[in-house]
Simulated scan of single mutants.
Amino acid sequence: MNLILWLLFGALVGWLASIVMRTDGQQGAVLNIVIGIIGAMIGGFLFGGPTINSSSFNLTALLISFVGAVILLAIVNLVRRGSVR
């Protein structure tokens, strides 16, 4: 059950981050999940708080994971295009 929640919250975080960074039309559901989960790892590393990867599903965990996903998409955009949107 925890795996299903992890995937759902990863998809939600990745989707919201892709909307903010305007890359939503370029990626599908699987890439949103990957962005959400890797972004949560980055957010946890940078801010040291709970993330969706640590089985702590609360607002703080979602916010830290979201910020990490936005940072990840900004880095990807910087590498791909040479500029952050």
Results as ranks from 00 to 15, higher is better:
residue 18 S to I: 02
residue 80 R to Q: 15
residue 69 A to P: 08
residue 64 I to P: 08
residue 77 N to P: 00
residue 61 A to H: 05
residue 21 M to S: 13
residue 32 N to K: 15
residue 25 G to S: 13
residue 77 N to D: 15
residue 73 L to K: 12
residue 50 P to H: 08
residue 48 G to W: 01
residue 35 I to V: 14
residue 12 L to W: 14
residue 71 I to E: 05
residue 49 G to K: 06
residue 21 M to A: 10
residue 76 V to N: 12
residue 74 A to C: 10
residue 24 D to S: 09
residue 82 G to F: 06
residue 36 G to M: 01
residue 33 I to C: 00
residue 76 V to F: 10
residue 79 V to H: 03
residue 24 D to N: 09
residue 58 N to P: 12
residue 70 V to D: 01
residue 15 W to Y: 14
residue 52 I to K: 06
residue 34 V to Q: 11
residue 26 Q to A: 15
residue 68 G to D: 13
residue 47 F to E: 01
residue 79 V to E: 05
residue 9 F to A: 01
residue 62 L to N: 04
residue 21 M to P: 05
residue 65 S to I: 05
residue 35 I to K: 11
residue 19 I to F: 04
residue 81 R to A: 15
residue 41 M to S: 14
residue 38 I to F: 15
residue 23 T to R: 08
residue 61 A to F: 06
residue 45 F to G: 09
residue 73 L to D: 04
residue 13 V to H: 11
residue 70 V to S: 07
residue 3 L to E: 09
residue 9 F to S: 04
residue 79 V to Y: 07
residue 45 F to S: 12
residue 24 D to T: 06
residue 68 G to H: 15
residue 79 V to L: 09
residue 68 G to C: 15
residue 14 G to L: 00
residue 39 G to L: 03
residue 15 W to I: 00
residue 70 V to M: 07
residue 74 A to Y: 06
residue 45 F to W: 06
residue 2 N to E: 13
residue 32 N to S: 12
residue 56 S to L: 07
residue 50 P to D: 13
residue 4 I to N: 08
residue 60 T to K: 10
residue 81 R to C: 13
residue 15 W to N: 03
residue 3 L to V: 05
residue 51 T to C: 07
residue 76 V to P: 02
residue 78 L to D: 10
residue 45 F to D: 02
residue 69 A to W: 14
residue 67 V to L: 13
residue 42 I to V: 13
residue 71 I to T: 07
residue 72 L to K: 04
residue 77 N to Y: 03
residue 68 G to T: 14
residue 3 L to T: 09
residue 63 L to M: 11
residue 5 L to Y: 14
residue 23 T to K: 10
residue 4 I to D: 02
residue 72 L to N: 06
residue 28 G to Q: 00
residue 6 W to R: 02
residue 28 G to W: 01
residue 22 R to S: 02
residue 21 M to T: 15
residue 32 N to G: 05
residue 59 L to T: 13
residue 85 R to P: 00
residue 52 I to G: 08
residue 2 N to W: 12
residue 40 A to Q: 06
residue 64 I to E: 04
residue 15 W to D: 01
